[in-house]
Design a protein around this nucleic acid. Structure first.
Length: 325
RNA sequence: AGGUCCGUAGCUCAAUUGGCAGAGCACUGGUCUCCAAAACCAGGGGUUGGGGGUUCAAGUCCUCCCGGGCCUGCCA
């Protein structure tokens, strides 16, 4: 039987991947490669719709590609590409603009969140779900692995596929989302917020930063705040999550028992998280170090070329269907 | 294109008739804590969007430019 087809993107807004990217998305991307035909895309056209550093962007694309390869994305198996190398993304997005209702976009909660209290809101920020729909449908993707914050956008994508099909004749399959068991990794300094580069230096741990820095960030992780309750505090829960992801089950179970018996020393938990985390990411760090950027560039160009071949077929058909010469 | 309001620290803002650029939050360090948090103590942080001008003295006044918000007009 034929494999399903996956498309997933990541914005090259930082110079390297952090633990949230890794456990929340990339680790799953690596696993999914075996069961699906996958396209993983650095979505640089998405990166430019909000403030960004033009001098850093192209290096970020390359560096994140290198990070992804180090994490185990296999360019023999999957396609690793960058968006702006395949102009058909924006071409299809424009076409989808014509069948997207203004109201649908206004209802996007992410747009409402991001545009609130911002003095410059680009039209691109408003339109971005359309580009995302184009990214997905351009390759006849059947499965989209995303966090639940992207559900609404995938739902729009399904709606656009349906609307296109009913106006111009069946063509696009409606992609399904899959939610892997991927946990949301929280900021250690503020365990009620998702780990993110944009919150500031304290709020994320890069896969590639120094061990000292990782250690001190974990050591200073917020644990209990305010009054004691029966519930495990978000900060402690977050540390347990990281331990579960990085340590053997027996180690995890030991700490859990300590917690339940009230004998847990948070320092011990933190140091265990640090040690297991570092040994888990050690091989990734080593692969990343040995990587040549020329090779990464070649992989990206090759992936983008293969993707483009598929994209061109889609665009050609779409243009015919909608009546363009 | 016209009208109008605005631009001061990472963020929100203050600075008298023109008179030493400041506060809160955030950040960094310390005390405390198993680690953190809270609290307290200390610290770093600025081309006041940019150029020119008036003045003994400009964040403040004049002028041009850049950027942004709102309104109107025009446009494929």
């Amino acid at each position: 039987m034929s494999k399903g087809k996956i498309f997933s993107g990541i914005r090259p807004t930082a110079s390297s991947l952090h633990l949230g990217n890794y456990f929340g998305a990339v680790a799953n991307w690596v696993k999914l490669q075996d069961d699906y035909e996958a396209i993983y895309c650095l979505v640089d056209y998405h990166a430019i719709i909000e403030d960004y550093d033009k001098d850093a962007l192209s290096d970020r694309v390359l560096n994140m590609a290198a990070d992804l390869l180090a994490c185990g994305i296999d360019p023999q198996q999957s396609i690793l590409m960058f968006q702006s190398a395949v102009p058909e993304h924006t071409e299809l997005a424009w076409i989808f603009n014509a069948i997207t209702s203004y109201g649908d976009l206004q209802r996007m909660t992410q747009f409402k969140d991001k545009s609130e209290n911002k003095e410059f809101v680009s039209a691109g920020l408003f339109n971005y779900p359309i580009l995302m729909a184009a990214d997905i449908l351009l390759y006849h993707t059947t499965v989209v692995p995303v966090g639940d914050d992207q559900d609404q956008h995938v739902e729009l994508t399904r709606g656009l596929a349906r609307r296109f099909n009913s106006r111009y004749g069946d063509y696009f399959a409606e992609p399904e989302t899959i939610h892997t068991e991927a946990p949301r990794i929280m900021s250690l300094a503020d365990p009620t917020s998702k780990m993110s580069k944009s919150l500031g230096e304290k709020h994320f741990i890069s896969l590639f930063e120094s061990e000292d820095s990782i250690h001190s960030k974990i050591r200073s992780a917020v644990t209990d705040t305010g009054l004691q309750t029966d519930e495990m505090s978000p900060g402690v829960k977050s540390l347990f999550t990281l331990l579960k992801l990085s340590a053997p089950e027996s180690v995890y179970a030991g700490f859990e028992t300590d917690y339940q018996e009230g004998t847990l020393k948070y320092v011990a938990l933190k140091d265990a998280v640090y040690e297991h985390l570092v040994s888990l990411i050690q091989p990734i760090r080593q692969r990343r170090e040995g990587m040549s950027m020329e090779e990464v560039r070649r992989v990206l160009d090759d992936g983008s070329e293969r993707a483009r071949a598929q994209a061109q077929v889609t665009i050609k058909t779409v243009k015919q269907k909608i009546g363009l010469p």
